[in-house]
Amino acid sequence: MYCNQPPKKPGDKKEVLQKITNMARANSLWVTAYGTGCGSIELRPLGTSRFDMERFGIAMRPTPRQADVLIISGYLATKTLKRVIRVYEQIQDPKYIMALGSCTINGGMYFDSYNTLNVLDKYLPVDVYVMGCMPRPEAIIDGFSLLMKKIKEGRAVGWKHYRENLDYYRENQKQIIKNWDLPDYNW
């Protein structure tokens, strides 16, 4: 079920169509329901009546195959990173990563932990960082609106960057994942 070939480089489509598509993509962000740290507890109020993310077209999808956004919600252990890489690579293009909390930015309160990585964008292309420890749902909605703006302007191209610089990311990932047993290409 894995590909043996490196992924093809994405090409640009016609402009007007691309604009309409970008609008559609921005207004229909589906989030993989996968929580990595304490931040995922802040995603629950987002779905319920107080903050209601469905009014922006944001919905939770239970499978990475159907999702667009992967939320790294808080501290990321090296063991979890392995799973996150697999989830991220199973999401179909275009895909976006939103990172919550100071842990993903510089390690936060786990900066000296033996098992928590400090700089997330060395391993995965992050489109939006939301600061805070933990960010409140309002801050996450703010992050989503920033992501929507980036998508509408066509600037959320982390997934293209990941494909083009796959070797760089793989090298960094293999540096901290000691028993690397993932296939080299798994999307």
Binding site: T78, K79, K82, I105, N106, G107, F111, D112, S113, Y114, N115, T116, L117, N118, V119, K122, Q175, I176, I177, K178, N179
Partner: peptide, 30 residues
Amino acid sequence: DFLLEGWKDMPPMRRDFETEEYARRTFGER
């Protein structure tokens, strides 16, 4: 393997394990 998959260093909960130095060496700093 239980929690640390493929750990090759000194066991991390020993008190002579330099956690901060290890984290800086492995994960880097922004």
